[in-house]
Amino acid sequence: MTVEPSDETKGPDAIIRVRDLVVAFGPKTIMRGLDLDVRRGEVLGFVGGSGQGKSVLTRTILGLVQKRSGKIEVFGKDLDKVDMDERRALERRYGVMFQQGALFSGLTVKQNVQAPMREHLHLSQRLMDELALLKIELVGLPRDAADKFPSQLSGGMIKRAALARALALDPELVFLDEPTSGLDPIGAAEFDDLIQTLQRTLGLTVFMVTHDLDSLYAICDRIAALAEGKVIAEGTIQTMLSSQHSWVKAYFRGKRGRVLALTRDDRHTPATAGGL
């Protein structure tokens, strides 16, 4: 979310680089030599069948699941070679939005957004209040939601609050785990717009696990498809549509995908009016 100086030209360098990743639980191998790049400033949509290990990959990159072998670099640093302090510094540079929100149920929305600030920064209470309210407004929540508890929020509001918390430390990279699941089509479209607006305004790199074909068409710069423990196809939506892999074909050219594929010419300039 940091504005880089204009003289420093940033190419499409990889902010996350995964090489030859193997993850297994007991005898069950989930990732079989997976390679993946996430480039700076892009929105990468990550798709895959249920149970194929999309969440496992996210959790492995985040360090919540142990890998068996392979290499993961985040911000150019090999995660196996960083010490605790470096790791903490890296963790400050990304935000995570979990599928169910994972908001702390005992804290209000405002306190949830402030929780990472309180741990990592030494700010006055006034500034933390202001920044929390600013983030809450940026994600399109009404002001009075700030003092509510997660149990008092609707599903869509929980997603927005979780996004606000993911953005609390102004990260450069955000992980979104199925951000539009469980939202109605209007809410999902609004959320897509919100992610895109924030991505542009704050210069974010977004790693998004999703099942939502609309999101993939509307806001993803690139898509990576996971099957059989590997990335089987990677590229723009056109690449996906022309892929010959049977699973990718079924996913993008199946009954649900076909309508979108036909109308996609009308959608190549997605709406930018978001919650701002």
Partner: peptide
């Protein structure tokens, strides 16, 4: 200004 984020922007505008 080398780098700026929402926190900086907020404080400057405040």
């Amino acid at each position: 200004v080398e780098r700026m984020d929402t926190g900086g922007a907020w404080l400057i505008d405040r």
